[in-house]
């Protein structure tokens, strides 16, 4: 298992109700796991526990069997892809070069081999021609792809992506999803949160649905994401619409 989470409990302060209340999940190499759930259900908190930004109260996080890694070591095992934000004036190549940081000896700048790895990462997500473009002049889709390239430059075993398709148009959503699908096909392991259940169908992913800090449903997308379960999770009537005989879209009923 590349990622194994056991009995994770987190609360913001002692005495408060837990935000995460005994979460278990596991991810094998080459697998995509979609983390679903309504707003405020603990998806982001779970990711922040994974990347070491929050300390969980109980439970364990194993990455390739290791726990409690120091930041530098963790950064070589796990790459975090945040939602594309910020107004940095750095060019996209500089942004991707940041991904080489955990591999650099301290007090050194990235070298030519790091630049080669960064350019390969940009090529892999299809934006090699934008290397010199400032981050704050790139489109939302290009920024998101650049942050995925930065994660690639980290050469990690596990990718953790926080709503990588949020606030992107359909075309850019498809570009990002294609990149995620291709990475998994190459053997990369990816944990991705989303508010769009149909992305789990498109990626052929396994699904874990969180509700109230607990796992409400887990399994293959086509098994878990039925109208009944989705309606319960999101507390609103939801229909699952098919395309070519397979479930493809989830549409709420107003």
């Amino acid at each position: 298992m590349v990622l194994k989470i056991e009995g994770l409990v987190y609360r913001h302060a002692p005495g408060l109700p837990p935000v995460l209340d005994g979460v278990d999940l596991a991810l094998a190499a080459g697998e995509i796991l979609c983390l679903l759930g309504p707003n405020g259900t603990g998806k982001t908190t779970l990711l922040r526990c994974l990347i070491g930004a929050l300390r969980h109260e109980r439970g364990q996080v194993h990455i390739d069997g290791e726990t409690d890694m120091p930041p530098r070591r963790l950064a070589r095992a796990l790459a975090y892809v945040p939602q594309a934000a910020g107004d940095s004036g750095l060019c996209l190549l500089d942004v991707v070069l940041m991904g080489r940081t955990p591999h650099l000896s301290p007090l050194r700048l990235p070298g030519r081999s790091d630049e080669r790895i960064a350019r390969e990462a940009l090529a892999r997500v299809g934006i090699a021609h934008l290397a010199e473009r400032p981050f704050n002049r790139a489109s939302g889709g290009e920024r998101q792809l650049a942050l995925i390239a930065r994660a690639l430059a980290q050469q990690p075993r596990l990718f953790v992506m926080d709503e990588p398709t949020a606030s992107l148009d359909l075309g850019n959503q498809a570009r990002v999803l294609r990149v995620i699908r291709d990475l998994a096909a190459d053997g990369m392991t990816i944990l991705v949160t989303t508010h769009q259940p149909e992305h789990a169908f498109l990626l052929g992913a396994r699904v874990v649905a969180l509700a109230g800090g607990r796992i409400a449903a887990a399994g293959a997308a086509r098994d878990v994401l039925c109208a009944k379960t989705l309606s319960e999770i999101y507390a609103t009537p939801v229909d699952v619409v098919s395309r070519d005989g397979a479930p493809a879209a989830c549409v709420p009923r107003l």
């Binding site: 922040r48 990347i51 070491g52 930004a53 930041p71 530098r72 070591r73 963790l74 950064a75 070589r76 796990l78 790459a79 975090y80 945040p82 910020g86 940095s88 750095l90 500089d94 942004v95 940041m98 991904g99 940081t101 955990p102 650099l104 301290p106 007090l107 050194r108 700048l109 990235p110 980290q154």
Partner: peptide, 23 residues
């Protein structure tokens, strides 16, 4: 001068810099 690379990474934000291995 010696810390100029990790300092540049800090520009990405504290959480992100931490996930890039910067203490």
């Amino acid at each position: 001068f010696l810390l100029r690379w990790p300092t540049q990474v800090l520009e990405a934000g504290d959480d992100e810099a931490r996930t890039l291995g910067v203490p």
